Amino acid sequence: MDVFMKGLSKAKEGVVAAAEKTKQGVAEAAGKTKEGVLYVGSKTKEGVVHGVATVAEKTKEQVTNVGGAVVTGVTAVAQKTVEGAGSIAAATGFVKKDQLGKNEEGAPQEGILEDMPVDPDNEAYEMPSEEGYQDYEPEA
């Protein structure tokens, strides 16, 4: 019985440690998101679009440190934060509304985080759909 109880105690310690790591990862992701939003706020009209992409990228980098179902929630929060940063930029006159959601080359930025393969159960990952990809044929 002692062996059984000791095993359960060790398992509990492992769960607590994993929860603490997840909590730490979420806190880091939130900190990076805040950094990115402050970065966007300090940019001029020309830099705002690039700044919004930076927020998304920093958040995406930190999301990889967070495991399990938390990833889905962090990704949703990050996307809403990026959308909010863009709205703030438009409201303050840093950028025109028609410039939001495009990178410096004018290509749409939507789907940055949505296409990231995420499995809350950590069982399997699927690649994003290939609808947006084109076949590449090298020139002879």
Rank of each mutant, 00 (worst) to 15 (best):
A78M: 14
M5I: 00
E57S: 02
V63W: 15
K12E: 00
Y133G: 09
D121L: 08
P117Q: 11
G67E: 02
E126P: 14
D135E: 09
G36R: 13
A124C: 10
A107I: 06
D2H: 15
H50K: 06
E131W: 05
G101Y: 07
E83V: 01
E130C: 05
V16P: 01
G14I: 15
K43R: 06
E123T: 13
A91Q: 09
T59A: 12
V77W: 15
K102P: 08
V37R: 01
V74P: 04
K6D: 06
S42H: 00
A91I: 15
Y136T: 01
L113Y: 05
Q79E: 08
E105K: 08
E46V: 14
S42V: 07
K97W: 12
F94G: 09
G73Q: 14
A89L: 10
V74H: 02
G68Q: 03
M116W: 12
G51F: 01
E35V: 05
V52A: 12
V37D: 00
K80H: 11
K12L: 13
G84V: 05
K43F: 01
S129Y: 08
V3A: 04
E61P: 05
K96W: 15
K102Q: 09
V37M: 09
A140P: 15
M1W: 00
V82M: 04
T54N: 08
T75E: 08
A56K: 06
Q99G: 08
I88R: 02
D115N: 11
V55D: 01
K97A: 11
V95H: 12
V74Q: 03
A124D: 05
L38T: 05
T44E: 01
D98N: 11
M5F: 04
V74F: 09
G84I: 14
F4G: 00
I88C: 08
K34F: 14
A19Q: 02
E110S: 02
G73F: 14
K32I: 12
V40Y: 15
E35K: 07
P108H: 05
Q24D: 06
S87I: 05
E105S: 09
K34L: 14
D135G: 04
K102M: 15
N103F: 08
G47C: 13
P138V: 11
S87Y: 08
D98I: 14
V16I: 14
E137H: 04
E35R: 07
T59S: 08
A85L: 08
V48K: 01
A91T: 02
A91H: 10
D2Q: 12
V16T: 07
Q99T: 09
Y133S: 03
K10W: 06
S9I: 13
S87M: 10
Q134D: 12
S9Y: 03
M1N: 00
G86R: 08
D119E: 11
E139P: 13
T44F: 15
A30Y: 15
G101A: 15
V77P: 04
V40A: 08
Q79F: 06
E137N: 09
G67I: 10
P108L: 12
A19V: 15
G25S: 12
D115C: 07
G68N: 14
L8S: 00
D98S: 08
T22D: 06
K34R: 13
V15D: 00
E83G: 08
T59Y: 00
L38H: 06
E114R: 11
A30P: 02
V16Q: 04
D119K: 12
A27R: 07
E104V: 02
D98H: 10
G73K: 13
T59V: 03
T75C: 10
E123Y: 05
V3I: 04
A124Q: 14
A124N: 12
M1D: 02
Y125C: 06
M5Q: 01
V55K: 02
A17M: 15
G73I: 10
D98F: 02
V74E: 02
E110T: 10
G14W: 04
N103V: 13
P117C: 09
G73W: 13
G25V: 02
A78C: 06
T92K: 12
V26L: 09
E104P: 08
N122D: 13
I112C: 11
Q24E: 05
T33I: 06
D135N: 14
E131R: 02
V49S: 05
Y133I: 13
K21S: 11
T44P: 01
P128E: 11
Q99E: 11
K43W: 15
G25R: 05
M127K: 12
V52N: 01
G106C: 13
A27D: 03
P108M: 08
Y125V: 12
V66T: 05
P120S: 07
A78K: 10
E28R: 07
E123F: 04
P108Y: 04
I112P: 05
A11W: 12
G132D: 13
V37G: 05
G93H: 06
D135K: 15
H50S: 11
Y125Q: 07
G86L: 14
A124P: 11
K97R: 05
V63D: 03
V16N: 08
S9L: 11
Y136Q: 15
T72S: 01
K58G: 00
G68K: 15
H50P: 08
V55A: 10
E61S: 06
Q79C: 13
G67M: 01
F4S: 00
G51P: 03
Q62L: 08
E28L: 09
G47H: 11
A78S: 08
V37C: 07
Y136A: 07
G31Q: 03
M127N: 08
A30V: 04
A30R: 05
G36Y: 14
E46R: 00
M1E: 00
D115V: 13
K43N: 00
K32S: 15
L8E: 00
Q109L: 11
S42Y: 07
E126M: 11
Y39R: 00
A30E: 00
F4I: 03
K43I: 12
G36N: 15
L113N: 04
S129I: 04
E57W: 07
K34V: 11
P117M: 09
K10D: 04
G41W: 02
G132F: 08
N65R: 08
G7L: 06
K45Q: 08
K96S: 15
G51K: 15
M127P: 03
Q62T: 08
K58M: 14
K97M: 01
V82A: 02
A19C: 06
A53C: 03
K32W: 15
G41T: 09
T54Y: 11
K23E: 00
A56V: 14
V15M: 14
G93R: 08
F94N: 08
T64L: 13
K21P: 00
E139V: 07
